[in-house]
Design a binder for these strands. Structure first.
Length: 572
RNA sequence: GCGGCUGUAGCUCAGCGGAUAGAGCGUCGGUCUUCGGAACCGAGGGUCGGGGGUUCGAAUCCCUCCAGCCGCACCA
């Protein structure tokens, strides 16, 4: 089905095209009418005529029969009020549409989304939260939009620290070490290795030798390294499970995966005459980048010691993703501090011809998670906050709230529900602020059941489902018609019909918070309706109509939340 | 110094060149003998960091200044 917005836009577009082909009607929802079109003024300017006159002409030429009534206001606004029959027909169509009006991409693209990227043998902490949550929401949005998503978890599984980590593993004994790692105690493992490395020269020498052995492919060293990697991946997988993130171990394609391609990256850059030796390092100087002294800034491909910089594996990854995986689109959900690095990598990949213009390549940046003091979020002791600790605390609080409220659920169900609420609280708080902005992590605020929070949306959904439970029998729409006599009903209905725009705008801009804004607005429309319009105690056609509105609202909330990676429990 | 991001109500944040800048929390007042009150309705609260400019129209685009955060050659 065509969304209501699209129906309206198509009719207006025809009229605008008669004055200037492709002129944007600038169609928006409005509080002056159901929608307003603001494109007349700009168009009048371009064609050199009076705005009111152009507005009148557009109104005269637009075939809005059966769609909307229109009024010209102010300097040339077109205020549109949707036709009751159109409203009814669109709502009836939604009842049978599992996608609730959102079109599926006619030509699916292959999209590679690079996100999460924790480090092997290190705990996942708040620093990974946003990349993981935002990346996963985007992956779900792309899938829902009908595209093919290849997730890539570019874990840090290579580099000099692995010398000391492997030596520490040997000191502990493989079994002991694996046991430590498998319970997720990665940080103390890493710290212990670090302490020895700093204090003990023999250990330091062993570690360095071990790095060389690792890099030269020594089988025994590789086997030991594999233990570290596998234990870590298993641990990450458990964290993703707790967070309900769709990443799997198969999506883990770490830095080491690209090792065998690095020589070729260097050779190819050299062949194309892009490689420059500078201070003993092999670099590319993409135009337009300078350092603090205004000198050209290099992207270091191979270091003086012949080791490869991380730019090399990033470049290899682009080559691989474009040529072997046939990506149409590359997204990097990586923190803002990497902006310049990634810009340079993209620039070099374009220069080298590995990244053709047809492939969209974008750095999806995000701001920091701040503590109550507005500085980077840390524990009171100044340590990074572990992701599992964060989630555990949220679960505990959610469980307490349920208890305080006198939840009748059994302990086991309650804990599961507390987990769903905790995840919703944390994810929604993260997704509902504009991506690029920093936000203050405030568990009290995000887990509150009132206000613009994940739990509030879940609650709205649970109340809706409760209506259908009380109904006592399966409900089906049958032959409902929507007369929308009450203002609250009409307001809610317009909200339901706007789901496609809500999703599309959020998706096109890669900004999950717009979908959050939409869902919160819908939930508010619903609660106002719920307060004013009795459902179960009404009778006949009115009752059917209200039940249908409830059904659509519940499905829209549930679908919208699921696209963001948030559960909508039946009962709370 | 250069580059990037940010500055909107007491607090946390939305705001797509359009009409009177909106939510949530908090505050104050109200509703309803609760289809789940974790609700609803209303009020108060703003030099949109300052100053210029472009435009019929600027929180939004441009310039400049102020404040804050981040990055700027071999750790990834």
């Amino acid at each position: 089905m065509a969304s209501t917005y699209d129906v309206l836009l198509a009719r207006l577009q025809v009229a605008f095209d008669t004055l200037e082909v492709g002129a944007d009607p600038v169609l928006r929802t409005s509080d002056r009418g159901d929608y307003q079109a603001n494109g007349v003024m700009a168009l009048a300017k371009r064609v050199g005529r009076a705005p009111r006159e152009v507005a009148d002409e557009i109104v005269g030429r637009a075939d809005l029969e059966g769609v909307a009534s229109v009024e010209v206001a102010g300097p040339g606004f077109l205020n549109l009020t949707l036709n009751p029959k159109l409203l009814n027909d669109q709502l009836v169509a939604l009842l049978d549409d599992p996608r609730l009006g959102v079109a599926s991409a006619p030509a699916p693209s292959t999209v590679i989304i690079d996100y999460s990227a924790p480090n092997v043998a290190k705990e996942m902490h708040v620093g990974h939260l946003r990349s993981t949550v935002i990346g996963d929401a985007l992956a779900r949005m792309y899938r829902f939009a009908g595209h093919r998503v290849i997730a890539r978890n570019h874990v840090g599984d290579w580099g000099t620290p692995f010398g000391m980590l492997i030596e520490h593993l040997l000191d502990l004994g493989e079994d002991e070490a694996a046991a430590n790692l498998s319970i997720g105690d990665l940080d103390s493992f890493y710290r212990a290795a670090r302490v020895k490395f700093d204090a003990d020269d023999t250990f330091k020498d062993r570690s360095r030798a071990r790095v060389v052995a690792l890099q030269s492919g020594d089988p025994e060293t590789r086997r030991l390294w594999r233990i570290l990697v596998d234990q870590s991946i298993a641990y990450f997988d458990r964290v993703y499970g707790h967070l309900d993130v769709t990443l799997t171990p198969e999506d883990v394609v770490g830095e080491s995966y690209y090792n065998h391609m690095l020589e070729e990256v260097v050779r190819d850059l050299d062949r194309r005459g892009l490689l420059v030796e500078s201070d003993g390092a092999l670099c590319v100087f993409p135009p337009g980048f300078t350092n603090r002294d205004g000198e050209p800034l290099p992207l270091i491909i191979q270091k003086r010691d012949e080791g490869f910089g991380y730019a090399a594996s990033d470049l290899a990854a682009i080559r691989d993703r474009v040529s072997a995986l046939h990506a149409d689109e590359l997204l990097y959900v990586v923190g803002t501090p990497q902006a310049q690095h990634l810009e340079m990598v993209f620039a070099v990949a374009r220069l080298a011809g590995w990244l053709p213009d047809r492939v969209r390549c974008e750095h999806v940046t995000f701001g920091n998670v701040l503590g109550p003091d507005r500085k980077m979020f840390k524990t009171r002791g100044g340590e990074t906050v572990k992701l599992v600790a964060l989630l555990d605390e949220a679960i505990e609080r959610a469980d307490l709230s349920l208890l305080r409220r006198g939840s009748e659920l059994k302990a086991k169900q309650r804990v599961h529900l507390a987990m769903q609420i905790a995840r919703a609280a944390i994810k929604y708080a993260d997704l509902s602020t504009e991506r690029q902005h920093d936000y203050v992590f405030d568990l009290d605020r995000m887990i509150a059941f009132e206000g613009d929070t994940g739990p509030y949306l879940q609650y709205a959904h649970a109340r809706l489902r409760s209506i259908f439970r009380r109904l006592g029998e399966p409900w089906s729409a049958g032959s409902v018609s929507f007369s929308l006599g009450a203002g609250e009903e009409r307001h809610l209905a317009l909200g339901l019909l706007a789901f496609p725009e809500g999703f599309e705008m959020s998706f096109a801009a890669l900004q999950p918070h717009r979908l959050c804004v939409y869902l919160f607005d819908l939930a508010q429309r619903f609660t106002a309706f719920y307060d004013a319009c009795p459902v179960l105690s009404s009778v006949g056609a009115l009752r059917d109509e209200r039940l249908a509105l409830c059904d659509l609202t519940a499905r829209t909330l549930s679908l919208g939340l699921s696209v963001l990676g948030i559960d909508a429990p039946e009962q709370m």
